[in-house]
């Protein structure tokens, strides 16, 4: 019997017992999925994004199914900072894994307010900065789509808290690396890639957009290749822990992100499809590590990059048994 491989990783100042995280917005605040999703076994949970004050969210319809994906325009429905601290965080903290709050705002002051308000919150391990919301001061262009506004938001959050700060990058940019660099220079401890891709669907029977808010964020297997490419690019360009996400449905997907350069991975939309998706990802990673005789999941981080050729299986090495087969017709 080979010893169990090491799963623990450190991501931007937070020690995780394993690299599998429940992604923001897909887990609510923990009440709905805690037991069925096996949340206690996971590396960390990121709460649904909060804004300084409660937001009702966008008009319905808010979800539309896409080929191998989901378009949503929930619109940051959330109970606000006070409601989160009072009603949601205590329950999340009882789950066991480190809890990160996800913060979103329309002005730099919003982010500052949230970071200050959360800095001393009991049971909070860190913050994930959601920069995909419209910037009211700049014609509603999202903070995360230009380096300078992104820098200012991250710098503000950094100045207001001693907690680890992860920045979740938006993929809706021409080039991801300048954004990643701006977040790093502003003091981010880790980067999360990617948020949803902005998209549109039209209902041709009703002759209007399928979503009440017109545009929505695309998630699910459909976006995985884009997410992987961005993780890869950022891993090549700078040295900072990355959390990979975007369409992860199973351990194969998760391992692709790890090999592209992610230290940890987050499972989001897959939880809707299969509440046990995240724990199944974890179990699949363990099977892979054992099957290949690896001592630690960290050995695989960035393993697919050219510079890591020494970490690849030797030519002619046979793939070990015990892995789940690749899915037929896998759109991802």
């Amino acid at each position: 019997m080979t010893p169990s491989p090491r799963l623990d990783v450190e991501v931007g100042g937070i020690r995780l017992k394993n690299p599998v995280i429940l992604a923001a917005g897909t887990f609510g605040y923990g009440a709905e999925y805690a037991a069925p999703a096996g949340a206690a076994r996971l590396g960390a949970v990121v709460a649904k994004s909060i804004t300084p004050f409660p937001r009702p969210g966008n008009p319905p319809p808010r979800v539309a199914e896409m080929p191998a994906g989901m378009l949503n325009s929930v619109g940051l429905e959330n109970p606000g900072l006070e409601g989160f601290l009072r009603d949601e965080l205590p329950r999340l903290a009882r789950l066991g894994p480190p809890v990160l709050a996800s913060i979103a705002g329309e002005t730099v002051r919003d982010y500052l307010y949230l970071a200050r308000g959360l800095d001393a919150a009991p049971g909070l391990a860190g913050m994930e900065v959601n920069v995909s919301c419209p910037n009211l001061a700049r014609g509603r262009i999202p903070f995360g789509s230009q380096p300078r506004p992104l820098f200012r938001v991250v710098e503000a959050v950094r100045s207001a808290t001693r907690l680890p700060v992860w920045v979740k990058l938006s993929p809706n940019v021409t080039s991801i690396v300048p954004l990643a660099r701006a977040a790093k220079e502003a003091g981010a401890d880790a980067l999360c890639l990617i948020n949803t891709l902005t998209g549109l669907a039209i209902d041709i029977e009703r002759r209007r957009p399928a979503l009440g808010a017109v545009f929505g964020g695309l998630s699910g297997p459909a976006i995985k290749p884009v997410a992987l490419r961005m993780v890869w690019e950022v891993a090549e360009a700078l040295d900072l822990p990355l959390v990979g996400m975007g369409g992860i449905m199973d351990a194969r997907d998760a391992l692709e992100f790890v090999m592209a350069g992610a230290t940890a991975v987050a499972v989001g939309t897959a939880t809707f499809v299969n509440p046990r998706a995240a724990v199944e990802v974890l179990d699949g990673i363990v099977r892979y590590l054992k099957a290949w005789g690896l001592e630690s999941v960290s050995e695989l981080v960035g393993a697919a990059h050219p510079g890591a050729a020494d970490r690849r299986p030797r030519r002619g090495a046979r793939e070990p048994r015990g892995l789940e087969p690749a899915e037929e017709g896998d759109g991802g």
């Binding site: 917005g25 897909t26 709905e32 999925y33 649904k48 319905p60 989901m70 929930v74 429905e77 809707f272």
Partner: peptide, 11 residues
């Protein structure tokens, strides 16, 4: 989306 109250999709 989720069917259990987590995603706020069925508002």
């Amino acid at each position: 989306g989720c069917g259990v109250g987590a995603c706020a999709g069925c508002a």
